[in-house]
Amino acid sequence: MIKVTKELIKELAEDIMLEISDEEAEKVYQTEEKIRNEFLKVTNMNVDGIDPMHYPFDVVNTHLREDENPVTITKEQMMINAPSKDKDYVLIKKVVK
């Protein structure tokens, strides 16, 4: 059982690409602590035999898309909001991987 600490929060922030200050990490930690405590009553509930419900009702998806008439947006449409681009590509600083 890994203890939740401010350090864990900072690690998580790194994983999800968020930069946060120590102060903020502390606040988040407090929030998580609070939620965990409030959730205790739910954690302790007996839910044997109850399936998780992802959708408000048990929808059977019968609508699928036909594989025909492919449509593309233009490069202009694709890149209209891109902060950095050239004629063909969206640009970012060199990725090291």
Binding site: T43, M45, P52, M53, F57
Partner: peptide, 15 residues
């Protein structure tokens, strides 16, 4: 499982 999935189970109970 402890949080997200548990919440989804309780969601079914609420429904």
């Amino acid at each position: 499982d402890k949080y997200f999935n548990q919440a989804l189970r309780v969601r079914r109970l609420i429904v």
